[in-house]
Nucleic acid binder design. Structure first.
Lengths: 330, 330
DNA sequence: AAATAAGGTCACCAGGTCAC
DNA sequence: GTGACCTGGTGACCTTATTT
């Protein structure tokens, strides 16, 4: 929009070429990179690693596709996903989302964002410039919480419709979603590593255990409620991917502008339809109930967040005050 | 570019056939010659001389391959050269480049270009029409300098990506590189003939010795600095081949268009990776430092060119004015 | 009507195969 | 060894749908 008059001065964010530009899949790219992205998500033929090993040229398909994901290219199916003919659209969408997730997973291990930004500052920035964590970076509960929150924000920025919102609307969404998204991703990690409780990648607990003033039972509820439910459900990566996007597309959030509400509602429709269709295809007759079970996970996530906040407040009252990043209270 | 619309009217530059044409390895050829070239550079099975001696038929593999090289067919590896599986790509590339070098060596002995073209005219020409030197052709420093410069330009024209550039960009590259390329090739010749100084093939010095106004020490520095370093390093033909191409792929040259910069940067990456991989394979543990040593040769080459220019200016001031070909000042 | 971003088509080139 | 033929990825160019 703001670009359209200056298109000639811009370049493809994937390959830096300046000819044949346009907004394709939400990102300013050349026609060649548009076709490349389309082909990859519809045929899924892309190497899962970089053959070039750090010394990559523009010809490497893996890295070219990583740049597409990193820059937020996202396929949005427009036709009715419930139509059986459109199954390849559904799988293209799911593949695309699962790439976002693996991008997110990679970053959680080794990236961070310097500083202590407020939510509004994050929303105003337009995108995040994450950096690699130094090798000796000391991680604790607070740092893990901060970094997973930041990476959830980075994740939301990968959705073109989030970028197209006004700053105020984006701030509302970020504030509401960052914690839930982190929890969803924590729960998938717990399931994949066959753990009955959620924790950070290095094993750090999500709350400080044995804190004064809280019962063991309460701490265990925080650690296990969500992981237990996810394990019961035998959740898939694809389901968590779709649930994450659906969570973000919540037009019912307070203080959203009416245009944002309309936009989010339309995307919510697309992604809930996609999840339903995924359930119908994967679970056949039990698809509808599966769909309901998955959506009910939101309640568990919300409850877990409440408990973690609660736990933190109790710790603050009973122990030495901790320094809290602005992300958590701005 | 200009060919694509008239492909039907064209012919294979190797064998003159008109069917099954395409731009293969940067040159308009038929499919058969494409396969022939590919086979030769990947298996290196080609006679080093022409069995038919001047009376060659189209069946001679040696002469067919010479036509491929002469017309600028060049293999460009796109996969990862650092991958051990792709070692045959590296050796194909190196073999291809060494053929360019030997083509260049042959021409230096017996070819020339009539006239006194400017750099821009050379860049605009699209290719050079070299001719055999008459048997009684008198060679002196100036003539040798001119001819090696011209042959360096001819060498650059053998690289398809140079041909694909705009005239202005090509002129920038020619102006910057022709002298350095000649010096690199002079230094290899010095090493191969076990000389401690650089000189032209017939023994002519690269600068007029005992010129008034310059010290013996300065003249000796010009003659020996580069040759000395190359002898110290025990340089190989392959290394000079790769260094020559890397020198040409310099996206940092002033006044290049942005598209030329992008193009050159991508080729620079390919060829520096190839050189690094060559060093790692050939020198094992000392490969990385060898790589650094080789790249540092550029500094010696640059210094030598400066000194030669300097020397020439001093001679001009102190002696009778020499007639200078436009190549050197256009 | 004009502009935009989807998707479709097809000629193109690198490389592989195989009968000759 | 040769070259016709095939394959897979590519990108210029075209059509279509939608918005303004």
């Amino acid at each position: 929009m703001m670009f359209s008059t200056e298109l000639a001065l811009q370049e493809c964010v994937i390959c830096k070429k300046t000819e044949n530009l346009g907004f394709n899949y939400g990102v300013l790219t050349c026609g060649a990179c548009k076709m490349f992205f389309h082909r990859v998500i519809f045929t899924k033929k892309v190497e899962s690693y970089c053959k070039y090993n750090q010394n990559c040229t523009s010809k490497c398909r893996h890295c070219r596709f990583q740049r597409c994901i990193q820059n937020g290219m996202l396929y949005t199916p427009i036709e009715n996903l419930l139509n059986a003919n459109n199954q390849d659209m559904l799988s293209a969408l799911i593949f695309n989302l699962s790439c976002l997730d693996s991008n997110r997973r990679d970053k959680l291990f080794s990236y961070h964002l310097i500083g202590d930004p407020t939510i509004y500052e994050l929303a105003k920035a337009g995108s995040l410039k994450l950096e690699e964590r130094p090798a000796d970076y000391r991680m604790d509960v607070m740092e893990w919480g901060y970094i997973s929150g930041i990476i959830s924000v980075d994740y939301m920025y990968k959705l073109p419709f989030i970028k197209s919102l006004e700053v105020d609307d984006r701030a509302v969404i970020f504030r509401y979603c960052y914690f839930y998204l982190s929890l969803l991703s924590d729960s998938l990690r717990a399931f994949n590593s066959k753990k009955a409780f959620i924790c950070f990648p290095d094993g750090t607990e999500v709350v400080k255990l044995n804190s004064p003033g809280v019962t063991k039972y309460f701490e265990n509820k925080i650690r296990c409620r969500l992981a237990g439910r996810v394990n019961e459900l035998n959740i898939t990566n694809e389901e968590i991917s779709l649930l994450s996007v659906i969570l973000i597309c919540n037009p019912a959030l307070p203080n959203l502008s009416s245009s944002a509400k309309i936009l989010l509602a339309s995307y919510q429709k697309i992604y809930t339809t996609a999840l339903l269709q995924y359930c119908l295809l994967t679970y056949q007759k039990t698809g509808p109930s599966r769909f309901a079970d998955l959506l009910s996970l939101f309640q568990v996530v919300i409850k877990t967040r409440q408990d973690i906040s609660h736990h933190f407040v109790i710790c603050q009252l009973n122990g030495p005050p901790a320094c809290l990043k602005k992300l958590f209270w701005s």
